[in-house]
């Protein structure tokens, strides 16, 4: 039997996303006491000392929204005749992951800046000449293979941010198709407005992909800071990633 502290230590070590709910105040309810806890991982209760089924249910329900908000917070739970509770939801987050699809000239400064920003960075490309350690010494992973296939096989969580910057739409499109319905928090795709418009139109007409799914894509990619050089484009892409992660309001080129 593992203890709660052991479970929590393991979660912080492995970088798993989880929510630990602690009752910090209970007024007018004798079935729940301050200090009772519930650990929720992947929508499932992993550990629990909250005796009241109704409260437990409310905790599990709220956990998902709080996890996607990425911030620990205190929540008041009004149980009408059963009193009032104050519950602290502690969010434990998987580190953010940046998946760079396409190892061309923008990818190089992109990976460097992303490492400064503490992302776990994976670079993928189908060309060994580009996707290699010498070119990306700071990357956490450099993978060579069919890009769309590799994306298909990855577990994409809400901690994933995906940047599509391959050498052409011929490659971006099949990659985009694999990730459009994923849980990734951010999908950005490089390209001119004209080509992006044509790509989205094909998705609508031929594949009947819903408008709200298409609207998830940040394309053209990046914040509107009038970039000219590859490092500047890399910076505008990562600034957009940070905007999505933290909930900022700066203007994206895509109109988001």
């Amino acid at each position: 039997m593992t203890a709660l502290s052991e479970e929590l230590a393991r979660i912080s070590e492995q970088g798993v996303s989880a929510v630990l709910a602690t009752i910090v105040e209970a007024v007018g309810n004798d079935r729940v006491e301050a200090g009772a806890k519930c650990l929720v991982v992947d929508g499932k209760v992993k550990a629990n000392t909250v005796g009241d089924a109704r409260v437990l249910q409310a905790i599990v329900r709220d956990s998902e929204a709080i996890l996607s908000g990425e911030k620990s917070k205190l929540v008041a739970l009004d149980l009408a005749n059963d009193g009032k509770l104050q519950i602290f939801f502690e969010v434990m987050l998987e580190p953010p992951k940046l998946i760079v699809v396409g190892a061309g000239h923008i990818a190089v400064p992109l990976v460097q800046i992303a490492k400064i920003l503490d992302f776990y960075v994976t670079v993928i490309d189908d060309r060994l000449l580009y996707a290699n350690r010498e070119r990306f010494p700071a990357a956490d992973e450099v993978l060579v293979g069919d890009m769309a296939q590799m994306l298909k096989e990855m577990t994409l969580t809400p901690s994933c941010y995906i940047v599509l910057i391959t050498r052409g739409h011929k490659y971006d499109e099949p990659c985009l198709r694999e990730i459009l319905h994923s849980k990734a928090k951010y999908i950005g795709m490089i390209g001119s407005r004209r080509r992006i418009k044509a790509c989205f139109q094909r998705f609508r007409d031929q594949e009947k992909i819903a408008e709200e799914v298409i609207e998830r894509v940040y394309a053209p990619i990046g914040l509107d800071i009038a970039t000219e050089t590859p490092p500047e484009i890399a910076l505008s892409i990562l600034a957009e990633v940070i905007k999505v992660r933290r909930g900022g309001k700066a203007a994206s080129l895509s109109g988001h």
Binding site: A3, S5, L8, A9, I11, E13, V24, L74
Partner: peptide
Amino acid sequence: KKQDSVYHQVKEFLDKGETVAVATIVS
């Protein structure tokens, strides 16, 4: 370091049979 998370520290004390208090800023 990752191994030094609060819960690693708590676990270490508990394994020695000690009681500790964890103070958390909740609001």
